[in-house]
Computed example of a mutant assay.
Amino acid sequence: MLLRANDSILIVVDMQARLVPAVAHSEEVTGRVAFMLQVARRLDVPVILTEQYPDGLGGTVEAVRTQAPDSPVVEKMNFSAMREPDFARRLSALRRRQAVICGAETHVCVMQTAAETATTGFDTFVVADACGSRRDSDKRAGLERLARHGIEAVTSEMVAFEWLHRAGTDAFRDVIKLIR
């Protein structure tokens, strides 16, 4: 199944000030998340950000937050955002069927959010290069487990080109500048 911008929601999980520095390859992961947000903004894909216990882990890192200044941020205590009534309500209100998920940590909050989002009927995709864990082995295990449950791992460029679906448009010219 291909992704469609007009049916997608981008969910950015817990890219927070006290967590992101501990994530392996954090600069690369943060850059890919920021790229996803730029593409989503250009293609009018709605975004929801989450923050796990922000009193302890801090707010969303600036490099991410600046790319989604008007997007809602849902605070959570549950590892799965789907267990937070405000998140589930916002997700449902968007009336879209494809959930594209990225953030930290892959094997905990990303995995649990993706698994529970899929059980509610969303076609669910995890953006592998825009996800991170403190250990690479945990990231791999999280992605493998999600795959066993039918959740597809994609890359940020796969998402961008599927959302675009064709070259030669103004949107394509804008997005291709972000890739080069």
Results as ranks from 00 to 15, higher is better:
L164E: 04
T155G: 14
P72T: 03
L49D: 02
Q52L: 06
L178I: 06
V64Y: 07
L143R: 01
V64M: 04
A24Y: 10
T113W: 12
R4I: 10
R4F: 12
G150S: 03
V12I: 05
A81F: 11
M111W: 13
T119A: 15
V110P: 01
G59I: 05
V33E: 09
I176D: 08
R4S: 14
G103N: 06
L43R: 11
T30A: 09
D55W: 09
A128I: 05
A130D: 01
Q38H: 13
L10V: 07
F87R: 03
T113L: 09
E162D: 14
I151D: 02
R18F: 13
L19M: 15
Q16F: 06
P46H: 08
E157K: 14
A93M: 08
R42A: 15
V175E: 06
I151K: 04
A88S: 07
D7I: 08
D14C: 01
L49V: 05
P54F: 03
V12Y: 00
R180M: 07
S26I: 06
G103Q: 08
A130R: 07
I101W: 07
D55E: 14
P21H: 11
Q16W: 04
R4M: 13
T155F: 12
V33W: 10
L2I: 12
P85Q: 02
C109S: 14
I179M: 15
M111C: 11
A68H: 04
R135W: 12
P72L: 13
A81G: 15
E28A: 15
T60A: 08
K76D: 08
V39S: 03
F161I: 08
T106I: 00
E84P: 00
F161M: 12
V39G: 06
I151E: 01
Y53N: 13
I179Y: 02
R134K: 12
V159Y: 02
E27W: 02
L19K: 02
L143Y: 06
S133F: 05
R97E: 14
H149N: 12
V175N: 06
H25F: 12
L164Q: 03
E27G: 12
S133I: 03
R89C: 07
Q16G: 00
G168A: 01
N6R: 14
D129N: 05
D170A: 13
A104G: 06
H165T: 14
E28P: 00
K76Y: 10
D136F: 03
G58Q: 04
E28Y: 01
F125H: 11
C109P: 04
G59K: 11
Y53P: 10
G103P: 04
R90G: 01
C109M: 10
P21R: 10
A104D: 10
R96F: 00
L146Y: 04
M158G: 01
G59A: 12
A130V: 00
Q16H: 05
V110K: 07
A167D: 08
L57Q: 11
P85I: 02
T124I: 03
V20S: 07
L146I: 07
L178T: 09
V64K: 01
R166M: 11
D70R: 05
D174V: 01
R97F: 00
M1H: 11
M36G: 06
D7E: 14
T117S: 13
R90L: 15
T119H: 09
I11K: 08
G31Y: 04
T119N: 02
E84R: 03
G59T: 10
R4K: 14
M1D: 12
M82I: 13
D170V: 12
M15F: 09
H25I: 07
